[in-house]
Amino acid sequence: MLFFLLESFIILLPLLGSIAFMTLAERKVMASMQRRVGPNVVGFYGTLQPFADGLKLLLKEAVIPSHANKVIFLVSPFITLSLALMGWAAIPFAKGTALADLSLGVLFLMAVSSLGVYGVLLAGWSANSKYAFLGSLRSSAQLVSYELPLAMVILIIVSITGSLSFLQIVEFQQGVWLIIPLLPLSLVWFIIILAETNRAPFDLPESESELVAGFMVEHSAFPFAFFFLGEYASILIMSVLTSIFFFGGYLIPFGISSSPFLQSFVLGLKSSLVFFFFIWVRATLPRVRFDQLMVLCWCSLLPLGFAFFVLIICTLVAFEATSY
């Protein structure tokens, strides 16, 4: 039990640290893209800015609206954060280095990420505010809709690799990374993960010009910090999933063998590049309308996902290339 707790902390503490520095990276990169300096006062070139922000949120008073359902109001950020962190149990950081090397790891992660919508829904409902409620409805509709094409892309990858284990999906890519045969599908995947993590240009739940701050508008201080951490943990896990599904996970190109430390460093590097893509898109594209978001999902991504699924399954059957 003690060993298991220690293992969990070994994963969670660097994860929370990386989330802190992700916020700094986002602000710095966006500042650079917009010809600004960005945070550069706290610490060396602003490196301590995330800790200053975190400390501020912890020291602030948590305001609870008088008409809110207080228990659910306070529990919902915790639900969001814990579900966002739970998915990390199945992620292999290097060969044989995962908290739980599940044979059905992909299924576990999909189940856990699907439950994340409950935190959003409960937060919006319990705040007893129209802005928060509208934000939560938007966010729930968005998350539930984009689950379908997301599952379709994952199903295609599982069909090709013949496994639901992350480790075997990574090992399957020893010869060639899946981004090369599945390039069109990877573009669909990039769009889906932007929507699934409520990021720009699909940040409609947060859309500050219409809904103030979306479902978390009434949350302040540490409940807000929990939502913030949960959101960034989801972004990070989507970056890692992209690396695992399309960029060979912890594998080094050209079949070079390496130590577990180097493998986890490579996975981190690939995930950082995917996260840079998140920032790049945020700094570049304007927000879409909600109807455009839904039409994109149901009328474009889902039919294309089905089409690629049929094509790839038929190709595997035609060439007798199934690995199972």
């Binding site: 294309l304 089905f306 089409a307 690629f308 049929v310 094509l311 790839i312 038929c314």
Partner: peptide
């Protein structure tokens, strides 16, 4: 365009199942 391309891409698969094995 998305429906047309989806139907087009989706049709390639079943046609391939019938056509590819005899050619091989």
């Amino acid at each position: 365009p998305s429906y047309t391309w989806a139907i087009g891409i989706g049709l390639i698969g079943p046609i391939g199942v019938v056509v590819i094995p005899p050619i091989r």
